[in-house]
Amino acid sequence: MRKLRMCESGKGLLIYKKTDAERNQGFIQMLLEEARLQDISLQLVFEEDLSFGVTGNKLSLTHPISDVGDISFAIMRTINPLLSKQLEQLKITCFNPAYVSEICNDKAVTYQYIAGLGIPMLDTYFVSNETFDGDDLALTFPMVLKQSDGRGGKEVYLVHSVEEILDKLHELPNKRFVLQEFADNPGKDIRVFVLGNEVIGAVLRESTTSFKANYTLGGTVRPYLLNESELELVGRIFSSLKADFIGIDFLLNKQGDLLFNEIEDVVGCRSLYSTSDVNAAALYMDYIKKSIECR
C-alpha cells in the first residue's frame, strides 16, 4: 500500500467526467458517504471544470468554485493521464496513479506490459490505418478488432474479412487498434476486482447473444470463486502493476484456463454489488485512509 503524508486538514477530490457522473450517481454517493463516515474530506468535481497548465513558469490547477490549493489526494474516476501527471507533480497523490492510467487505458500498451510478465493471452497484433497489411495475416478469420483506447466493449468488432478490417481502419484513420484471434469461449469472461494487493471479488459474465460478455451491454453475471492457480496468476499482475483499485478481465480457453484480456483502470462495480455483499466503496475509502499517514 502506498503511503501519503498528509496533515489532518488535507482534502481529497473525487474526479469524474460529467457524463460518467450522471451514470454513476449511486457509486458516487457511496464513496462520499463512506468518506464522511471515515472522517475523510472528499469533494466531487468534474474534470471539465478543472483548468491546469503552466502559469508564471509554474504548474497550476484551478477550479471556478472550489479551492483546490490545499488538496492532498485525488480519486481518479476519469481517464486523463495528463491530468493525473499534473496532480502528481503538484504533490497530489492519485488513486490510481498516472502510470496505471497510461498502461491500462491503451490496450496495445496493456498487452505489451502483461506479455512481459509471461501471462497467457490470445495472439494479438497492433495495427493502424497506416500499417495494416491485409496480404500478410498470421491469424485466421473470424478475428476481433479492438480500438486501443476503447472502453466497456463499445469499440470491439468481430471481423470476417480483410475488407471489414479495412473499412473500420479507414472509418477511424487516426485511431490505433489491436487485432486478436477469436476466443475459444466467446461471450464469456471473468472479471477480478483487486484492491491494492488483495482480491475482493470476482464474477463470471456471460452473453448468449454476443461474443462480448460485458454486464453493461446486457450480459448476465454470477459470482466466481478463483482457485489457487488462478489467484497466483492474478497476483503476478497486481504485484507488478501496484495499482490501487482495478478490474482485471480474463477470457477462457477450451480447457477453462484463464487468458488475460484487459485491465479496467476506472473499474465499474455494478456486477460486484449485484452478486455479493462486498461494499467496494467502503473498502476503497478504508484503503485510502490507511494510505494516509498524518504528520
Rank of each mutant, 00 (worst) to 15 (best):
I15E: 08
G118T: 09
E206Y: 10
Q180R: 15
F245V: 07
L226P: 02
P64Y: 10
G53V: 07
T208Y: 00
E264R: 00
C104P: 03
G116Q: 02
V159Q: 01
N227P: 00
F182N: 02
A108M: 04
V144A: 01
N253W: 08
C94H: 12
F193Y: 14
T124Y: 08
R5K: 12
I65T: 15
P64A: 07
F95K: 05
L139P: 04
S271I: 06
V194M: 06
A213I: 05
D106K: 03
D39G: 01
S60D: 13
D136C: 14
H160M: 04
F250Q: 03
I288P: 04
E262F: 03
S41L: 09
E163H: 08
V162G: 00
T19H: 13
L31I: 00
D167R: 15
L87D: 01
Y215L: 11
L59P: 05
D189K: 09
K154D: 13
L32D: 09
F141Y: 13
F260R: 08
S271E: 13
D135H: 00
A74V: 08
S9L: 00
L4I: 15
Q255V: 02
E232Q: 15
F260M: 06
E33Y: 11
L90V: 10
K11N: 15
D20P: 00
D286E: 14
G152I: 11
E34A: 12
D20C: 03
F132L: 02
T216A: 15
K289I: 05
S271R: 08
I92C: 01
V178Y: 06
Y224F: 15
